[in-house]
Amino acid sequence: MENAQLEVAGNAALIVVDVQKGFEEEFWGRRNNPDAEGNIAALIDAWQASGRPVVFVRHDSPADSRSPLRVGHAGNAFKDVVEERRGKGSGPELLVTKSVNSAFYGEPDLDAWLKGAGVRQIVIAGIQTNMCNETTARMGGNLGYEVLFPLDAMHTFDLAGPFGWTASAEELSRATAVSLHGGRFAKVVTTAEVLLGAGAV
């Protein structure tokens, strides 16, 4: 890639979206990017080592729903790759719970927390690429944040849509990347670029 080195702010916030055990259930179908969890772990480790803020987001589906992410179900819990890292950093950490796609519509108020800390740049990783990650990125861009979107630190699933159309997880990821980057909602990058820009490699 011929672009100049990515600049990651000293107080850039890493937002780790919905890395929950429920996404391991067959309910969702076939996923892409088996390297997602490893890249998410690398980002969390780098952020915690540098003292940058980390936000862990958990999706709490209603307890009476069939969602594997529902409250009270084992799938609501964070995957081990995230849970074993929570609370281990030297910087600020926040837990946001939500029941919709955007992490900015959760509790506590993510936008208020970020702005209170003077954060202007956010890095989004987690699950799913074209769902909660994309929605959070679009809203972050609308709210005035510089959004970095490391596409290899997330994954999604094959999906059926209208008119008998289907799209593979890879196709959906590419569509999200093109929409966000081309539409200037976010800068779509790689985990390696983010780590380099953050001074972690």
Score class of each variant (00 low, 15 high):
68 P>N: 03
71 V>W: 04
71 V>N: 02
71 V>M: 11
72 G>Y: 06
72 G>W: 08
72 G>Q: 12
72 G>L: 10
72 G>R: 05
73 H>T: 03
74 A>N: 06
74 A>V: 07
75 G>V: 03
76 N>L: 05
76 N>F: 04
77 A>W: 01
78 F>N: 07
78 F>E: 04
80 D>F: 05
82 V>M: 04
83 E>Y: 02
83 E>R: 15
83 E>L: 12
84 E>T: 15
84 E>A: 09
86 R>I: 13
86 R>D: 04
86 R>L: 10
87 G>M: 05
88 K>A: 15
89 G>V: 09
89 G>R: 13
89 G>D: 12
89 G>A: 12
90 S>R: 14
90 S>V: 15
90 S>A: 15
91 G>K: 15
91 G>H: 15
92 P>D: 14
92 P>I: 05
92 P>Y: 06
92 P>F: 09
93 E>C: 04
93 E>P: 11
96 V>N: 06
97 T>D: 05
97 T>I: 06
98 K>F: 01
98 K>A: 05
99 S>I: 13
99 S>P: 08
100 V>W: 01
100 V>A: 03
100 V>R: 08
101 N>K: 13
102 S>F: 01
103 A>F: 06
103 A>I: 02
103 A>E: 03
103 A>Y: 04
104 F>I: 05
104 F>L: 13
105 Y>D: 03
105 Y>C: 01
106 G>F: 08
106 G>Y: 02
106 G>E: 04
106 G>H: 08
106 G>V: 03
107 E>C: 01
108 P>G: 11
110 L>F: 07
111 D>K: 14
111 D>Y: 12
112 A>R: 12
112 A>F: 02
112 A>C: 07
112 A>H: 05
112 A>D: 12
113 W>N: 08
114 L>F: 14
115 K>W: 12
116 G>H: 14
117 A>N: 14
118 G>S: 14
119 V>F: 10
120 R>L: 08
122 I>S: 13
123 V>G: 07
123 V>E: 08
124 I>V: 13
125 A>K: 09
126 G>E: 10
126 G>L: 09
126 G>S: 10
128 Q>L: 11
128 Q>S: 11
129 T>K: 09
130 N>I: 00
130 N>D: 14
130 N>P: 04
130 N>H: 15
131 M>N: 05
131 M>I: 03
132 C>A: 12
134 E>P: 02
135 T>V: 10
135 T>K: 06
137 A>D: 07
137 A>G: 07
138 R>F: 04
139 M>P: 00
139 M>E: 07
140 G>V: 00
140 G>F: 05
141 G>S: 07
142 N>D: 11
143 L>W: 00
144 G>E: 00
144 G>C: 00
144 G>S: 00
